[in-house]
């Protein structure tokens, strides 16, 4: 196979005038394409479009699944802004996201920079760093309770070596979120892999010319490496922020559910957990739908802000950025 074989999406040829036969071919291609795409179209209509519309409607009603939805206008939204638990869960979620996302990206970056120097062994370490990502989030929630146990957990045992009397991570409200954030850093392996891939894409010439100019290692990292991988860093900030706002399983496992009568859990009440409780434990489907829309708007606003801010910092190689 010749190496210049045009990929499926090659440069578009100039539009030719169609002969009748070609027009028929076009119609046929369109029909075939739609046939291939039809599973997604059906799924989009049933499991995205309709739910979006119906959820918007439900958010204006009282609905408990058993009785018909009862239209209440914007009452759910009004209630939402007065409900102290919504405010609490929103605050918890903001704090969690605002701390865990930068921590996640910075630690991933440090590890990727280290890995980039590990030479042949980097494959081994990449495997090791990714391994925790395979742990089911339920098990991670359980690990939070075990490792961060205040009396005899591993974390406090480790702190004890240095003479530090560790806090009661799982019961002291002011230490619950820090514990969850620390635990969340355990599963940053995929970010390390993404950043390592980006690091290896940095053209060698840039490093060569920096060497000629006599730049030191710190200058090289700051002026070449970071700008060249800023696209990937930004990608990680965006997807981790979106995921952070929806964090659920680990905290729910550790601090909520039928069994928990021993732990105080207000500090772990994240927005998605409260939404889940409203919808499926209290059957306030209308109120929960309103909560979902507020979440959507918040995530949208935060993402747009991040995109606007990123314009100033993110460098794309020429020709790789018009979208």
């Amino acid at each position: 196979m010749s190496s210049q074989a045009a990929p499926l999406r090659g440069p578009r040829a100039a539009k030719p005038v169609l002969r009748p036969g070609q027009r028929r071919n076009r119609r046929r291609a369109r029909r075939a394409a739609l046939l291939f795409i039809s599973p997604w179209i059906a799924g989009f209509l049933i499991f995205t479009l309709w739910p979006v519309i119906y959820s918007a409607y439900l958010s204006l009603t009282d609905y408990d699944v058993i009785n018909n939805p009862n239209f209440v206008g914007t009452a759910n939204y009004a209630e939402l802004f007065e409900d102290p638990k919504t405010a609490l869960s929103l605050r918890n979620t903001f704090i969690y996201t605002a701390i865990s996302v930068p921590a996640h990206v910075i630690v991933s970056l440090l590890l990727a920079l280290l890995l980039n120097r590990a030479g042949r062994a980097s494959g081994f370490f990449r495997t090791v760093f990714y391994l925790p990502k395979m742990t089911p989030p339920v098990a991670i929630g359980i690990l939070v309770l075990l490792l961060f146990n205040g009396q005899n957990g591993l974390v406090n045992g480790f702190l004890g070596w240095f003479g530090i009397d560790g806090p009661a991570w799982t019961t002291d409200p002011s230490w619950i979120k820090p514990g969850l954030i620390l635990m969340s850093l355990w599963t940053l392996g995929s970010s390390v892999i993404i950043l390592l891939a980006a690091l290896r894409d940095v053209p060698q010439e840039l490093y060569d010319s920096a060497k000629v100019d006599g730049a030191n290692s710190f200058q090289v990292t700051r002026s070449i490496t970071l700008p060249m991988i800023s696209g990937s860093l930004f990608f990680l900030v965006i997807i981790n922020t979106i995921a952070g706002f929806q964090t659920f399983t680990e905290a729910y496992t550790a601090f909520f559910g039928s069994g928990n009568t021993t732990y105080s859990n207000d500090a772990a009440l994240f927005y998605s957990i409260y939404l889940f409780q409203q919808a499926f434990e209290f059957l306030h489907m209308g109120y929960a739908s309103a909560m979902a829309w507020v979440l959507f708007v918040i995530v949208l606003i935060v993402t747009v802000i991040q995109m606007v801010v990123s314009r100033r910092f993110v460098y794309y190689e020429s020709g790789n950025n018009d979208g």
Binding site: R26, A29, R30, A32, A33, L34, F36, I37, W40, I41, F44, F47, T48, W50, P51, V52, Y54, S55, L58, I242, F245, Q246, S272, L275, A279, M285, A288, S289, M291, A292, W293, L295, F296, V299, L300, T303
Partner: peptide, 27 residues
Amino acid sequence: FRFRGRNVLFGLVLATMMLPGAVTMIP
């Protein structure tokens, strides 16, 4: 395939990734 509306449809595919699961969860 190349057909009219392809890019719009594919844009829609990508857009659904941005939608939080909570919005469609209840319906």
